[in-house]
């Protein structure tokens, strides 16, 4: 099997195992969702001394990790995005963010990828609430190569971090030479008609749309943001100056996440019309990906339409 054909969670577990081989201080914590995040049995069997099962106690898991981090360990705590962010938000805020402890929080099955579990387990606001936390670094890798590179980076950098982890297979976008840089957006395609901004799970769709539009005569500047915080403002501003029209798409509530970051940057630096695609301030429900795309209008055809509309309605000579 090619590397990019692996499930993202298998890459998560495999990369953690590799990192533990190199650095015995890397620790994997689970709150009874190890099978879901891929570390059970892979990490638990290969590195039993570096694997800590916390049981269904997400709040406690974050505190345990903070204590471990204070003593020089590099703990990775995984749970569904809903529990890793929403449920344990105060623990993450105080024991990790405020205390600035070197804890890595991994939110699995982000947004609509948790469709079968429905509204209780789907979280559309983890990027927004984690982004609003001082000291927190917020990443959302788009494929296996980026995931691996981000995990390596997380071990190297001593800082609180939240990372979304898609569990399933994702199409190949990057390659084995890719190196994650949180300060830089990844320009997946250069274009001049419209800027398309994406992160995490939606980047594979944005990539496909950008390629199709480009072959149809619409030149798309496609910016993928593996790091939503820190946020590379400069690349976005330069792109907006070039295209004058921006579409942002994310597997999140359109309030406060990637689209929010795009609007904050542009409104303060280079006011440009922005169309945000994603979840329009709704909770989740048991549903398929296609159902979510159609209901809220952020699937590939909607992204393509938004790019065309934004291009058509472009206001030339944006103020700046």
């Amino acid at each position: 099997m090619n590397y990019h054909e692996m499930e993202m969670r298998a890459v998560y577990a495999g990369t953690l195992n590799g990192l533990m081989d190199e650095n015995p201080h890397v620790i994997c914590l689970e709150a009874d969702l190890g099978k879901s995040s891929g570390t059970v049995p892979e990490v638990r069997e290969k590195h039993p001394d570096n694997f800590i099962e916390c049981g269904v106690c997400e709040a406690n898991m974050i505190g345990i990790a903070a204590g471990l981090a204070k003593e020089g360990k590099i703990p990775f705590c995984a749970s569904f995005t809903s529990f890793a962010s929403r449920r344990a938000y105060d623990q993450v805020s105080i024991s990790v963010g405020f205390a600035n402890n070197n804890v890595k929080i991994v939110g699995t099955a982000p947004g609509i990828t948790n469709g079968p579990n429905g509204g209780t387990h789907i979280c559309f606001q983890d990027l927004a609430i984690m982004r609003a936390m001082p000291n927190m670094h917020v990443y959302s890798p788009c494929d296996v190569y980026e995931l691996r590179s981000i995990l390596r980076f997380m071990v190297k950098e001593k800082q609180p971090t939240y990372m979304q982890l898609i569990r399933v297979k994702v199409g190949k976008i990057l390659d084995t030479n890719y190196r994650f840089n949180p300060e830089k957006a990844v320009i997946l395609r250069e274009g001049s008609d419209v800027t398309l901004v994406s992160t995490g799970y939606m980047t594979q769709f944005a990539y496909k749309v950008a390629n199709e539009l480009s072959s149809g005569g619409i030149s798309v500047d496609l910016l993928h943001y593996p790091s939503v915080k820190p946020f590379d403002a400069e690349t976005l501003i330069q792109s907006a100056k070039k295209t004058g029209a921006v579409v942002a798409v994310e597997n999140q509530n359109i309030i406060g996440g990637l689209g929010g970051a795009v609007c904050e940057v542009l409104s303060e630096n280079y006011p440009t019309r922005v169309k945000r695609l994603g979840i329009p301030d709704r909770f989740g429900e048991v549903a398929s990906e296609q159902y979510f795309f159609d209901k809220y209008g952020f699937g590939p055809e909607h992204i393509a339409r938004a790019c065309r509309d934004m291009m058509k309605n472009k206001v030339k000579g944006n103020s700046a």
Partner: peptide, 13 residues
């Protein structure tokens, strides 16, 4: 409530 969890982490480390 948070300090005791952290203390567990310190003891475990």
């Amino acid at each position: 409530g948070q300090g005791l969890s952290c203390a567990c982490g310190i003891a475990l480390a």
